[in-house]
Structure formats: C-alpha cells, structure tokens
Write a protein that binds this DNA or RNA. Structure first.
Lengths: 204, 204
DNA sequence: TATGACCCTATCCTTTCGGATAGGATAAGG
DNA sequence: CCTTATCCTATCCGAAAGGATAGGGTCATA
C-alpha cells in the first residue's frame, strides 16, 4: 500500500512515515507544500491514499482539496488537520474526500483508517463528528436565526452597524435590533465579546 | 534520558514517542492535557525534559508554561507548537523555557534539540526566530508601549473603557487616549478590529 | 540641561452603540 | 383561523466610544 503524506510539519511527517512503515507496512512518499504534493501526484505512480494537511502552504483550505480530487482521477484523497472544525470536516466529505483525519487520532487508529479509506470507504471519527454537535454551548449556530448569523459574521469582521446594513442591504435600525437580540442569545455584553464568542465557537 | 510529552494530538504523540524511543534511545511519558501533565510532574520522578504544546487544553498559552516552570523546580520545560509565532517563542524563552520547538522541525533535529536542552542549554531554531522577524506587520507588540499593551489586552477581553480603567487603576479618559493611539499603531478602525488583530498576531 | 519617549489627566464634541418599545409583513403549523 | 417565529422598519434616549487638543509629570539619555 502506497501513501502520500503532505504536511508542512516535518516533525509529524517524519515520525508518521516511520510509524506507517514499521507498524502498517506501508510505502510512503512525502510533500511539504501543496505544490510539492501536486507535482508528486502528476509524476509519480498512483497512490492508494493521498493525505493533505488543511493548513499547509498553498493548500488554501478546501480549495486545494477540491483541486487535488479533481486532478487525480479516482485516487483517494483525505484531509488531515489539527485545528479544523467539524464544519470543515463535513464540507470535505461533501466535496468527495476519502475521509477526514484529526491529528488528535491515536496513531494505531490512523493505520486502520488508512486501510479503510484505501478500500474506497469514507472515513471520519465518530466522536469528532458528533462531539461538537451536541455540546450545548457550541450549538451556538443553532440558537441564532440565519439573519442573526449574517449580522454576527459582520461583527466578527469588526464592522460597524452601518457597514453591516450596507452589506446585507437592510437598514441600520434593523441591524441594531438583530445585534441586541443576538447579544442575549450568545451571552455577550458588547460587540467585541460577541465577535470573540463566535470565533471561539468555531463559527466563521 | 527521560522525556515528558504533553500534546493533545494523539497522532503526533504516538508517532513521536516511537521515534524517540527507537532513534533517540529515550524514555518517554505522555499527557494529553495540561492537567494530565501537571499531575505527572507532581507524582512521577524527575524528567530530563518536559515538552508542552502551546495549544493543548488547559494550557492557556504562556500561562501554563509559567505555571509549569514555577512548580517543577529546575526541571527543563520547553514549548512545542505548530502555529505559534516568533513573538510567542520569544516570550516563552524570556519566561525561562528550556526552548521552543516548532512542529515544522525535522524529527532528527528534534532529537538533537532535546539532548541540547537536557544539557541545560536554551534552544530555538534560528531560521524560525529570524525569518518572521523581518515581516513588519508581525512586530506588533514592539510597536506598542507597555501601557498600550495592557489596554489592548482589555480590548481582547471585550471590556469597556470604564472596566479597563478600573482594572489598571487609572481614569477613563486616559484609557480612551491609549485606545485611540493604539488604533493607529495596529491599523484598526474600532475596538473589535483591534481585539481581532491582537489575537491574530498571537498576543495574549 | 535639554530633548524626547512615555504615561497620566482633562475638556469638548460628534458619532456610534445599546436598550426599550411599537409596529407591520410573511410563512409555517396547530 | 389564530398563534408563533422570523424578519423588517421606525423613533427615542442615554451611555459609550472615538477624535481633537492641551496640558503636566517622570525618566533616560544625549
């Protein structure tokens, strides 16, 4: 089984390669940037699994994932990340990724996940996908109406009510109302706190 | 040589442990949260090196580092991180850390760095420490006076001018002055943006 | 001793926020 | 049909925030 690992953290890459070769009897190839990975995919023979880091240089989030999936017809492409949210994982799976692997996964599970994905199954750790969903404090997005979420996004961008009003093409008084009710719903005392809380919760 | 590795990414921890034991002939112990690490330090025998992840649960940035250094008298405590900025690394070293290890370091170098730190030397990768320095936008903390930094911290906590004034035991007009000048220095249009910029830059 | 950097206080004024309240329109569901 | 939820508009008012300016104090350094 042949695996390509693309991650800008040499430390993880080096140790992971060693682990996969010893424990999983896998052949490995590595890349440190998206461009690296890209050229390897173009030139080398086929891989049973391609692992792309979400935060690596050139990756540009899900854009890189989509590009990779599109260009290496049929080869399995999975996402790996230490920081990504459940939302991102879901989007990746929707985009046709072979799976999502958080770095909080034990190394042994990783080997199993790899084999699973190479068999053309879609993988994502259940606890990761469900955990965040049912935490009440983090169901933040569900407590807000679509409109309030749009307003909240504006707050997280440091915009004034007037600016948000212009962006959403509604009047400022309306924005103020949404802002006010939104404060209650996320337990914020002012717009800065609301922005911080939203970011903390992984929204946007 | 005995090493404690505290990181919430099982994947890195597992593979790193294996690597260190095989390549570096080191004994390892692990922890997944700051609390875990804390109890291990309290109960276990002494370590030649303790490695703390900057982003792990309970760590709270540099606060956890300081706590660890203070409580395990004489033992070497180093910081590891995949995302931290040069600024954070510098602060860590100033706080008395044995060193700073970015996850972009090759695994082989890591073994050497560990041995180096265990010999009571202070370690930080030169390229990492110099590279970011010449980016003008990231010298953020250096552009602000100590007082302005205190005020900025208040902003990142979503506090009002009045609250900040009470905290720092100075009058509100003074806070407003610092806030205003601070905006110019970090290129913010309002307090929310200032808070976001500060957090983005890795301050606090 | 003089200059400059930093910190503090203060006043004035305008804009923005944030809260309270009172409506109206629409769509979904009992 | 009525209720409820959501989104919209609007006005009023007090409290913050933000900008401009004018001081005074300390301390290090030239």
């Amino acid at each position: 089984m042949r695996v390509l690992i693309a991650d800008d953290h040499d430390l993880l890459r080096d140790t992971l390669v060693m682990f996969l070769e010893v424990e999983g009897k896998m052949e490995t190839a590595v890349a440190g940037t998206f461009q690296d990975a890209f050229t390897r995919i173009e030139n080398d023979e086929r891989f049973d699994l391609i692992l792309l880091d979400f935060n690596m240089p050139g990756m540009n989030g899900l854009e890189g994932l989509r590009k990779a999936i599109a260009m290496c017809g049929g080869q399995r492409v999975a996402l790996i990340s230490g920081e990504a949210t459940r939302q991102i994982a879901e989007n990746a799976l929707e985009a046709g990724a072979a799976g999502f692997v958080p770095k909080s996964l034990p190394a042994k599970s990783l080997v199993n996940a790899f084999k699973f994905m190479a068999m053309r199954e879609q993988y994502a750790p259940i606890d990761f996908m469900t955990a965040v969903e049912e935490v009440p404090g983090n169901a933040l997005a569900d407590k807000l109406t679509p409109r309030e979420l749009q307003v909240l996004r504006g707050l997280t961008e440091g915009k004034s009510n007037k600016e948000i009003a212009r962006d959403l093409d509604i009047t400022e008084p309306t924005i103020k109302l949404h802002v006010k009710t939104l404060y209650r719903e996320v337990s914020a005392a002012n717009r800065t706190q609301a922005a911080l809380i939203a970011l903390e919760a992984g929204l946007f």
